[in-house]
Design a protein around this nucleic acid. Structure first.
Length: 677
RNA sequence: CCGAGGGUAGCUCAGCGGUUAGAGCGGAGGACUCAUAAUCCUUUGGUCGUGGGUUCGAUCCCCACCCCUCGGACCA
């Protein structure tokens, strides 16, 4: 590899701060982190930056629905996101937020320069406006009847039933998803960035390696006609940065989001916007943005245009990846078929996921599938069976029978070790080109050979006749293991670190591949990682099903705005007493697979006996959360036959439904069967 | 409707501007016992989406068609 050290600035796309990190996000962060770790291992200088995309209407509304100021809400999300990334070993130099003073200062710089350059124009735009909430409504926050197929309750941009796309203004009977009010059309002045001003340099960028050819082809289509002006302003109230010199105008959050990369850089440098710019403009600095294919437009057109307009250099490369599917199906946020990062980590080892993603990742923007069968196979047979096993079979013998001391590798192992070391350049090339699938393929092939070698040399019997020969064999096996772990370090850093610890060697770098371990005493072997048990995956999936649609993107949570349920007519105490409410203890709860909402709950109502209740709480609770807890339920409600059985009562809860369901509790000393008066 | 990518063993994929098509996993049988439970050996298995064409010869080139995925057409 080249002796000249590269100077890299790497980013992953900023996750939107209105929901948890899920396993689909992780493809990108793990991919980037692997690449970054590899570059560091090679001795290159890398700054890896990211942060929350913290502005916009959805965040503003979501914060409000939780009774929080947006600042409080995004602070919490930021904490959660950091914790999630840490769990998966994604190591940023700085994880910041677009809601930061550095970012605001940078936004002002960009805006002033774009304005001075004559690239900003103004135009009136007519949009739907919610007269109750006094906000302009993004497309996704308008619901109505599809103009094509007449399906009710469709989004403002497209119909989920017939797939037709349209304008929000085409919807029949439009309603605001925020307040339920009928939206009005209103006009207001918007600010636009004239993309067409940058046509030539942007088009040139495509041909000079900003993206690979597949993506470049796609982008060429966009240049087929005039590039439209980009609407960069939003009207108050909006959570974001006010446009300087204007009243009630804010920057659209997609304007300040990529600038957030620079803000994170400023923060990382402990300096100002000017320091960040200076760093960015360093001649040898290569800027690499890792992004999903859904945001190519922003990173290949808007962002370079902004940079060029502000007198800064465009990025060197966009590393575009595809989306994640699970067991061959699209991960649907609204249908709840996604797994949160934290949730995964509660059930399964994050290192497994890093390994698995690596086996599926290439430089192409192709979708990758997480098939749990395949996941088990690969983790168990490759990661555990081949790679970890090599160390776990050699190290304990050495410790137990040969005082744990390594020696000189046996002569028979030299061709093998040569091959291990010779793989270096091919592996480095695969890594650098983000061909991680090829990396793991090569590494497994090497591990296969090492295991064959151990098998043939049979050090466990050799040790009885020739202890020193056995030591040589085991040393060679561990040497193989050591080299493999260097190769794997970017992918499974935690396991690699455990191997270093076991082998009692300092943290290895790429250069150590060509070296050998000195003769020394290794440490007691400790468990590196276990096998995937399908049960654990099932547990996780069941939990996931039970949770369904958590807090992501969809405007549904907005329906949770309080105070919308009208007060019921007055009732007498006699009428009230006809409702028999009882305390019960949950014996068993089970999420009904075939149902979106229902959970089958078995209750112990003390002297009243046991009851089976079907409760619409699947999206809000996990079965485990319910087992053993006390609830209040209506015991004299007429039994009701439902699709999944008969429900013998109703568990009391507040909230609008969906994920927003809150069970009533009773203090500890209450006993099952007691009536509630 | 348009565009892009893909359809290769049960699964995941590699290959290729042309000889008898590869790997891992799985299945079957065996060996071994050092392994925090795995490895090793043998073996099974494909008319390389369909139909044409070019050629001495095509999985690989050309044409048509089918299917899958993504994207565009509307919005960003």
């Amino acid at each position: 590899m080249a002796a000249v050290k590269r100077n890299l600035l790497v980013t992953s796309a900023l996750p939107y701060a209105n929901g948890a990190i899920h396993i689909g996000h992780l493809v990108e962060y793990i991919q980037t982190d692997i690449w970054v770790r590899f570059q560091r291992l090679m001795g290159n200088r890398v700054v890896y930056l990211c942060g929350d995309d913290a502005h916009g209407t959805p965040i503003m509304l979501r914060a409000r629905s939780e009774g929080l100021a947006p600042e409080q809400f995004i602070a919490r999300m930021n904490q959660e996101h950091r914790a999630d990334f840490a769990r998966f070993g994604v190591q940023f130099d700085c994880y910041y937020s677009t809601h930061s003073p550095e970012n605001e200062a940078l936004c002002h710089c960009f805006y002033e320069r774009l304005k001075t350059g004559g690239h900003i124009v103004h135009r009136d735009v007519e949009q739907f406006f919610d007269p109750v909430e006094n906000i302009f409504l993004p497309d996704r926050f308008i619901r109505g009847q599809c103009p094509a197929c007449k399906s009710p309750d469709q989004y403002g941009d497209s119909c989920e039933i017939c797939g037709k796309h349209y304008n929000p203004t085409d919807l029949l009977n439009p309603k605001s998803a925020v307040s339920g009010a009928v939206p009005e059309r209103r006009s207001s002045r918007h600010f636009f960035l004239r993309l067409e001003d940058f046509r030539e340099p942007l088009q040139k960028l495509l041909r000079t390696g900003l993206v690979d050819s597949v993506v470049a082809n796609k982008l060429e289509e966009w240049f087929g006609k005039e590039l439209k002006d980009w609407d960069i302003s939003r009207d108050a109230p909006f959570f974001g940065f006010p446009i300087p010199g204007e009243t009630d105008k804010y920057f659209y959050n997609w304007l300040d989001a990529p600038i957030g990369y620079l803000a994170a850089l400023a923060r990382h440098l402990g300096g100002s916007a000017a320091d960040a710019e200076e760093y960015w403009q360093m001649e040898d600095l290569e800027v690499h943005h890792f992004i999903g294919k859904d945001i190519i437009y922003f990173h290949a057109l808007f962002w370079p245009a902004m940079l060029l307009g502000a007198g800064l250099k465009p990025p060197k490369q966009l590393c575009v990846h595809g989306h994640l599917t699970i067991n061959g199906e699209k991960m649907s946020k609204s249908r709840g078929t996604f797994i949160n990062a934290a949730q995964y980590a509660r059930h399964l080892d994050p290192q497994w996921l890093r390994y698995y993603f690596a086996t599926r990742l290439s430089a192409l923007p192709a979708d990758i599938d997480l098939s749990f069968d395949d996941f088990c196979n690969r983790v168990n047979s490759e990661l555990v069976g081949k790679l970890v096993n090599l160390i776990s079979r050699a190290a304990p013998i050495l410790t137990r029978l040969l005082e744990g001391r390594t020696g000189i590798v046996t002569v028979e192992a030299l061709p093998l070790l040569n091959e291990f070391r010779a793989a270096e350049s091919a592996l480095a090339a695969d890594y650098d080109q983000r061909n991680f699938a090829a990396v793991t393929r090569r590494i497994c092939a090497l591990a296969d050979q090492a295991n064959k070698f151990v098998e043939n040399q049979a050090p466990w019997s050799l040790v009885k006749s020739d202890a020193e020969a056995a030591r040589g064999v085991l040393t060679a096996a561990l040497e193989c293991g050591r080299i493999l772990m260097i190769y794997l370090k970017p992918i499974i850093p935690d396991i690699a670190a455990s191997v270093e610890k076991c082998l009692n060697i300092r943290p290895q770098t790429w250069r150590d591949i060509q070296d050998s371990m000195p003769s020394h005493i290794i440490k007691q072997f400790e468990h590196l990682t276990g096998r995937v048990e399908e049960r654990k995956i099932q547990d996780m999936l069941n939990e996931n099903k039970a949770q369904a649609t958590p807090i992501i993107a969809s405007p549904a949570p907005a329906a949770a705005v309080a105070g919308t349920e009208p007060l019921a007519p007055e009732c007498s105490i006699e009428q009230f007493s006809t409702i028999d409410l009882r305390v019960a203890r949950v014996i068993r709860a089970e999420a009904l697979e075939a149902s979106d909402k229902l959970m089958k709950v078995e209750l112990d109502a003390g002297p009243l006996g046991k009851r089976t209740v079907l409760a619409g709480i699947k999206k809000a609770y996990l079965p485990e959360q319910l087992n053993g807890r006390l609830v209040i339920f209506c015991a004299n409600l007429a039994p009701r036959k439902m699709k999944f059985g008969t429900s013998e009562g109703m568990i009391l809860a507040s909230g609008p439904g969906g994920t927003e369901v809150f069970l009533l509790s009773v203090d500890e000393r209450a006993t099952p069967g007691q009536r509630v008066h």
